[in-house]
């Protein structure tokens, strides 16, 4: 552990890569390494991109990496793609758009699959961020699965949350819906060379812009249109304490819930309660609420009160 930490701090890429794998594999390693490095983190700026599939998040990130590199920054990138709930397999393909940076020593790109997490964030993303921070990255860019409306969790672990949209994605009623629209720090309308970009911008500005959240139009493959977005990201000011605390509240709450869920799933798999009670409910011996109460009673005794 000490050895791998020293190597990461010294900028050894293989060590960083191995450590990320260990984070994923081993819960105890995860806890231990984060406890040890949390004091040497905090230098990196964390920027998260979210939005529906196909709006051009990866291509936009590719352009942003290029601009940040030209400004002398070191950039870490975490790409999250979905995992099949049926086979457990996944095809991690976000990287294709940014392979031109693959051999640049100031860039480190890592793809992760979601561990069945509806927020679109793999649970270890926050820990990978810490490792990349300790490695000495100036910017850490996170791309999440484009779940759109429910991906509020992302805002808890980053400084700037950017929601990427494109023209013709819906009218002002869509924009008024709750969720991710409320946590974005910057709105981007990508593919702004398509017809309808001005209308989408109008909808956005008129409905969600009470807090003066900036709206930027980009065409991802056109560098000049992306520069203003990077300027905006770089202009970042320190988050005020109350907001920081509220972010941490959100993070801790989801961590506690995750932890309980993990323990509960372990128990359910071990005990076969679900199978046993499902049979009884199917045979109409008992109703499902009674079954729930019985399972919960055993669960509390064996897991939560231990």
């Amino acid at each position: 552990m000490e050895e791998i930490l020293e190597k990461i701090k010294a900028g050894n890429r293989t060590a960083l890569s191995r450590a990320i794998t260990l984070l994923e594999k081993d819960r105890d390693f995860r806890k231990e390494i984060i406890k040890r490095i949390h004091k040497c983190c905090g230098k990196a700026r964390i920027v998260c991109f979210t939005g529906p599939p196909g709006v051009g998040k990866s291509t936009l990130i590719d352009q942003i990496i290029g601009i940040l590199l030209s400004r002398g920054k070191k950039v870490g990138v975490i790409l999250v793609d979905p995992r099949s709930p049926y086979t457990g397999g996944s095809l991690l393909g976000d990287r294709i758009r940014m392979q031109r940076h693959a051999t640049n020593p100031n860039v480190f790109i890592r793809s992760l699959s979601t561990l069945g997490d509806p927020s679109g964030l793999s649970r270890i993303v926050k820990d990978v961020i810490k490792l990349m921070d300790a490695f000495g990255m100036d910017y850490i860019i996170v791309e999440t699965v484009g779940t759109g409306q429910i991906a509020v969790d992302v805002s808890h672990i980053c400084h700037t949350t950017i929601l990427v949209l494109m023209p013709n994605m819906g009218d002002d009623i869509q924009m008024m819906k709750a969720g991710i629209m409320e946590v974005a720090d910057i709105f981007v309308i990508n593919k702004a060379d398509l017809p309808g970009a001005d209308l989408t911008e109008g909808y956005l500005k008129s409905t969600v812009n009470e807090n003066n959240v900036p709206v930027v139009k980009t065409v991802a493959y056109n560098r000049a249109t992306v520069v203003p977005l990077v300027d905006l990201i770089e202009k970042y000011v320190e988050i005020p304490m109350p907001r920081k605390i509220s972010k941490m509240k959100g993070l801790l709450k989801s961590m506690v819930l995750d932890y309980i869920e993990e323990k509960t799933l372990e128990y359910l798999e071990r005990s076969k309660d679900i199978e046993n009670y499902a049979e009884k409910v199917a045979n109409e011996e008992i109703d499902y609420y009674t079954a729930l109460e019985k399972i919960y009673e055993k669960l509390t005794k064996e897991v939560l009160c231990k």
Binding site: G89, L92, R95, I96, R97, Q99, A102, T103, S113
Partner: peptide
């Protein structure tokens, strides 16, 4: 390989051995 349950990372076309 994805369907067989693996995590597959695809690089896209025209990669150098270094990449």
């Amino acid at each position: 390989l994805k369907d067989a349950g693996y995590e597959v990372i695809y690089t896209g076309i025209r990669q150098s051995p270094e990449q």
